[in-house]
Every structure is written in structure tokens, then in C-alpha cells.
Design a protein around this nucleic acid. Sequence first.
DNA 1: TTGTATGCGTTATCAG
DNA 2: CTGATAACGCATACAA
Lengths: 339, 339
Amino acid sequence: MASIKEIAKAAQVSCSTVSRALNHKKGVSTEVRDKIIKIAEDLSYFPHSGARSLVQNRAGVIGVIIPRTSEFAFQSPFYNHVLLGLSEMAGRHDYNLMLIINDSRSYTSFYYRHQVDGVIVVGNRINDERTIELAEKNVPAVIVPGFPEGEYQNLATVNSENFKSTHRAVSYLIGLGHRKIAFVLGSMSSKYSFERLEAYQKAFREHDLDYDPAYVAESDFTKTDAYRLMGELLDLDQPPTAVICINDTLTPGVLQQIFSRGLKIPQQISVVAIGCSDLLDLVLPPLTTVRVPAEAIGQTMARVLIQLIETGHCNKRHTVIPTDFIIRESTGPAIGQGG
Amino acid sequence: MASIKEIAKAAQVSCSTVSRALNHKKGVSTEVRDKIIKIAEDLSYFPHSGARSLVQNRAGVIGVIIPRTSEFAFQSPFYNHVLLGLSEMAGRHDYNLMLIINDSRSYTSFYYRHQVDGVIVVGNRINDERTIELAEKNVPAVIVPGFPEGEYQNLATVNSENFKSTHRAVSYLIGLGHRKIAFVLGSMSSKYSFERLEAYQKAFREHDLDYDPAYVAESDFTKTDAYRLMGELLDLDQPPTAVICINDTLTPGVLQQIFSRGLKIPQQISVVAIGCSDLLDLVLPPLTTVRVPAEAIGQTMARVLIQLIETGHCNKRHTVIPTDFIIRESTGPAIGQGG
DNA sequence: TTGTATGCGTTATCAG
DNA sequence: CTGATAACGCATACAA
């Protein structure tokens, strides 16, 4: 593979002149420059990125960390949409994306190795020590969703409107007369589960209602587990008249359990899905949905991180992306459902 | 950030000794080694990957090239599953993944820049000149699906059983009495579309039937286009009694068109889906499916590429991954459908 | 067992 | 406008 040296030899100039010419710096005569550029093309020359990062102290790469199994990361519409947004925005700013999925290594290590100029953590778990290390070591980083506490120079967060959207969905169901509202959550080590459960509880309190913990199910975020848990919920003496699914991976499991029992939606049970999947649009009846704009989350993360990397600070340390509440046909009044 | 030099100073030894100790090479006394390792940890030392790639001529990175819009790449279950397989296998062999989505740059350039040790092209378009360049410049590469022709030292291909599986699906429908079988394809610049159309034609020929090109629709691989084309197909004087959807992105559009007209599956129209989506399992009635094991495709690609990179050759230059044909409830006899 | 010297490909500083 | 030289961080051949 060609190096700057060979070009220099072929053009009968020094390495410095070649470097200047190829980097479009001034101080090279037009004829010499043209000659060098032509030779470089003929030799299919490209600069060695490692050598460059050595002198320039810049990798041109953003690390995308997803602390989930690859299976989960790539099958979940949420992560896919976030990646989509990241990819768009990174490309627009000439950064490449390095994927770090389900990796046990320290998050800072990729930065210390100079493999990446900064990292994005998607699906951060509450109290993951590696995220804290990221902050303490001052590595440029953007975290979703949120970060426990503290203000750090090089750390920003992006959040979707978890609390507000869930609160709205639960209030809506309560308004329809529902009292036994099942809530299929993911793991409680996820901020998504945590914040949304708080919203659920608050909505009940605001309507002077007690909420029954029996209707709240903590899943491992898989379809299989959602299927199982929904089964248990429907087996209760007083089965729920409505159910909220916390994300796209759980919704199919919940629906399959409902379908398998021949229950009618929304006549016998109302369903609200939180998520961003297009494929779930196919379900009949069309689902009442809290639509999470995951693509916008990805775009925002990339934009903020690049600002952090290039300027050392960012305009807005904590961004919250609004969600939509779309009422369709899977929710109806609780009247006449017995119980 | 700490370098080998600082460690050397702190340990009062030379750089070479530090390098040897940290790389677990012999020729370092145990006490010196332990001392060096401790200091390295204290200083959170990690080797500079650029400097290393300069000396070792190895990046430890696999380039994953998807010549599609990021939107398409991340929303298509096929690409997601392939990425899943890639990610698993790469991680197991200590390679990182660099994502190159919808990028107009030459594929070889990433290799020439020493950013990657080899590349994987997912969703190669027939006659994409950049793929040919990859082969001619002898860059370690694995292509899916297939590659026009020629044998190259550093190039391998992975294919799913496109022809055979489609052939089986069409034969099955013909066996059920269907004659007007619509086939919603993607772009004809995709080898998937091309090979599957050939299989479709061959199945008709084998049954001494003429196939009518009017039933073959070439889409742009989007759900919207599938919806539109299925509309046109159903508007024909002699509408199809069965339809085959060539992949997961098209299936939802086709189904929505069918649902929107209130047509019953399979009584009024039979549906066969080709793909690998789990979410589509939710559709009622359960779809007869050609299941493409995309995850296995990804795993195989990574395995072969790594062998190519590390040994300079591979055991099997062209791998074909078998598909499953799963008969469920969306297909039925063509009898009594008029026409 | 350890240290010295060299080179990988690039950019930057400085002198001419 | 151009060239020589040093430096980035690391690994290694060779010398001690």
C-alpha cells in the first residue's frame, strides 16, 4: 500500500510537500500540487488513519455502546431507530460509528485507546459503574436514558418524555373507567421502567385511587417473559381490564397471550403500547400508542456528542424529546367488563 | 493520557521492558513485570490503537458496509438479524465492528486507510463497481448475497438458499391449484429479486404452465410501494389468488392492502412471506413463511472473513445457508376463487 | 534479563 | 515555496 514517502519519491519532492499538497494547505505551487495529487490517485493512496490519529489526536470515530445482548439490541425497534438517527447525524459530520454491543470492557477504555473520540451509551442501566467512570474520567459522552445525578463537564443526557407520556396514558385509561390496569414493565434496573412506574403510581394517586402492585409485572424485556406474565395477570381472580406494554419487545408477547385466550380488544381488554415500531402498526385492532421518537433521540445524541468533542462543552446538557399519545382502536371504556 | 513512556519512567525501566511486560512476553523478571502492570493499572493505561496498528499492521476492526439508506438498513429485520450474527461472531474473535451505511466512498478506501482489516458487504447490488474494485484490489471481503462471477483470492460469498426456497414456495402454491400467483419483488438490481424471480419462472415451466409477467411487480423495497403495487395487482381484471412477498419490509404493505379491502386470508387470497421477522409472527392468520436464517448468515460472514484476514485463504469460498419453508394458515386451495 | 536504537506514516516546526 | 527534522506511541531486532 502506498505511503506519502513513495509519492514523494515519485514526484521528486519531500514528504512535507506531499502532506501539504494532499491536505490542501497553502504554500505549494499549483503545478507541484497537481502533480502530487495525480500521483496519489494513481497509487490509490489513502492516509493511514492510525498514523494520523497519532499526530492529530483524533480518531474520527464515535463509539456506540449498547449494554444489551446483541440479540436484544438488534431486534428491538427502539435501538434500531436510535441507531438510524445516530448513523444519519454521524455521517453528516464525517464521523464513523464503532459498535460496542454487550461488551464487558470498561467504557473509558475505548477512549483511552484512542479508538473513539467520544461515546454514546444507549440503554444505560441505573448505577452502571462504567457510566460513572465515564463521567469521572471526563470522557465526552452522551447517555440515554438519563444519568443518576451530578453535573459533569463532558457528559450530557438525552431522555424521552417517559414520565409525562406514561402519566397521560394511565390517566386516559382511568378516565375511561379502568381501575385494574396491568403494567408490563421491563427490568427495574432500567430507567425507563423506573420512571414510567412512578408516573403510573402518580396518576392513580391524583385520582384518589389506590394502585394494586399485583397488576405491575416486572419482566426481563423479552417477548417470552411478557407472554408468561400476561398469562399470570389474566389468571388473577380480578383480571385487569386494561394493560400497558412498556416497549416494543414486550407488546407482541402480551398480545399473543390475549389472542390465544380469544379475548376481544378493546371490548374485553384495552391495550396501550409504548414504543416506536412500525411493524406493530399491522396489529388489529390498531393500537393506542405512546409513540417514542427514537430516531430523533439518536440524532440528538450524535449532535450533542459531536459538539462536546469539538468544542468541549454543549449548549444543553439534558435534552428531553417529547412523545406523542396516539389514540386508536385498542382502548375503550371499562364499563360492563364485570369484576 | 498515560503512555508507555510514563510507565517506564515511573517504574524506572526502559520502554521496551514495559512493552514486553504488558504484552505478556517472556524475558521480564516477575517482580519487574508485576511492578509495571500495577503502575499501568494505576495510570489507567491503554495502548494507543493507532500507534499499535502502525507497527502491527492490524486494526482489529471489521468494516460492515450496507449500501442502503440507514432508514432501510435499521428497519429491515433482515439487516438487523445479519448484524446480530456479525456482532456475536466478531466479539468472540476480538474484532470490533465499524458501521458504514449508505456511504458513497469507495469500499477499498477503508482498508487502504487501515481503518479495517477487511470488509463485509451486506445487500450487495448486482454490478456495483465498488464490489468489483474490492475483489481486484485483493481486499479481504465477504459479500452477501453472492457476487457476479470470477474467483478471487481474498473474496468469499455467503448466500441464502434463494432459488430453492422460492421454487418450493411457488410449487406449493401451484400444487394448491393457484395459477395467478402475484410476486412482489424488490429492485431487480438486487440478487435476491433476480434469483427468486428465476425460481418463480422455473416452477411455472416445470408444471407446463405459462407465467404471466403482469403478476410480477418490481418494488423499491418499501412498505408504501408494496401497498401501492398490491393495490394495482388486486385491481387487475383477473386478480391473483395468491401472493408471495419477497421480504419483511414488503409484507406489511401487502397485508395492509389486503386487509383494507376486507379480503379473507386464505379463503380469498393466499399469502406467502419470505423473511426473518419475529414481529410478523403476530399477524393473523399466521403466515406461511420462507424463513431466512439471517443471523446464521451474519455469523458465517464474520467467521469466513476472519479466516480470510488471519490466514489469507478460506476453506469454503461460497457458502449457501439453507432456508426453512414453514406452512401455516395463510395459504389454502385456490378452488372456488373464480377467475 | 534489560536497554538502545530504529521504524511504522503522518503532521508540524523551523530553517532556507 | 520547499526541505530537513522532530515528534506522536508502540514493538522489535540487536546489543549488552
